[in-house]
């Protein structure tokens, strides 16, 4: 589904990604771990098409199609979803209205009519219930005054609504208490299917107890320096990242 080939990316002439290779197939869950500043969030942003980053070499291919010329919204329409580490506050626009806009813009891009209002409402209710989101919450302004946990839960709610092919969760576990973490992880697990894939970006192993990865990759200094199964995450938790750094510099 997703193929990243020798991806190099820079911001303001500073190279952050230095040759990433990664293949993600439908039905798989990949975890990308690594110390702070290793390029995890940059990788997520580059896949989602953030223009601030310049791809200097290599490419990102989704279902055989190079995404190079696609704006972030085009990638979203093709099924890429990024759950943000720091979601943006949009005062005056309710969660419900925001979702209506997002869904109908995606449908428009596919040549479909707007989703009928009652169907939309039903979908919103269903997904909100799945993530144990109160109905009152849906009429609040998007992310405005939300707690850290509410923001993250709302990100997964958006994911549930948009049903992406490829979901990238960027530090979704940060700022979540254990109950919120469980709810969020349950939501993600319910959305998993043989047709979609999830990339979980995290610093800690904690979230991976709930969203169990098929593959774990360690990112260091803009490169994937080690890949393995879910046991690699446990090893990292126990030993920290220093040994990886040492191995990488040898």
């Amino acid at each position: 589904m997703l193929k990243i080939n020798d991806l190099h990316a820079s911001v303001e002439d500073k190279e952050i990604l230095k040759g990433i290779n990664l293949e993600v197939n439908a039905g798989e869950v990949h975890a990308i771990m690594g110390p702070n500043g290793s390029g995890k969030s940059t990788l997520a942003s580059v896949i989602a098409g953030k223009e601030e980053f310049e791809v200097t070499k290599g490419n990102v291919v989704l279902d055989g199609e190079d995404l190079e010329d696609d704006a972030p919204e085009d990638r979203a329409h093709k099924g890429v979803f990024l759950s943000f580490q720091y979601p943006v506050e949009i005062p005056g626009v309710s969660v419900t209205n925001f979702m209506k806009t997002a869904i109908n813009e995606s449908r428009k891009a596919k040549g479909l009519e707007d989703m009928p209002a009652n169907q939309m409402l039903k979908l919103i209710r269903e997904k909100a219930e799945m993530l144990e989101i109160d109905r009152k919450f849906l009429s609040r302004s998007l992310n405005e005054g939300f707690s850290g946990g509410e923001k993250k839960r709302n990100e997964i709610f958006q994911m549930a609504m948009l049903e992406p092919k490829l979901a990238i969760l960027d530090e979704t576990d940060s700022g979540l208490d254990i109950d919120a973490l469980r709810i969020v992880a349950n939501g993600v697990n319910k959305l998993k299917s043989k047709d979609n894939a999830v990339i979980v970006i995290t610093h800690y192993q904690r979230l991976l107890e709930y969203i169990v990865p098929d593959f774990v990759h360690v990112l260091h200094n803009g490169k994937i320096v080690k890949s393995g199964g879910k046991e690699l995450a446990l090893e990292l938790e126990a030993k920290g990242y220093d040994w990886i750094k040492q191995e990488a510099t040898v």
């Binding site: 098409g49 953030k50 601030e52 972030p72 919204e73 329409h77 943006v88 949009i90």
Partner: peptide
């Protein structure tokens, strides 16, 4: 804010909107 723009666009909302 460019980060806010990216957030909205990544949800499938075109640049103008």
């Amino acid at each position: 804010d460019e980060d806010a723009m990216f957030y909205l666009q990544s949800r499938g909302i075109p640049e103008k909107e």
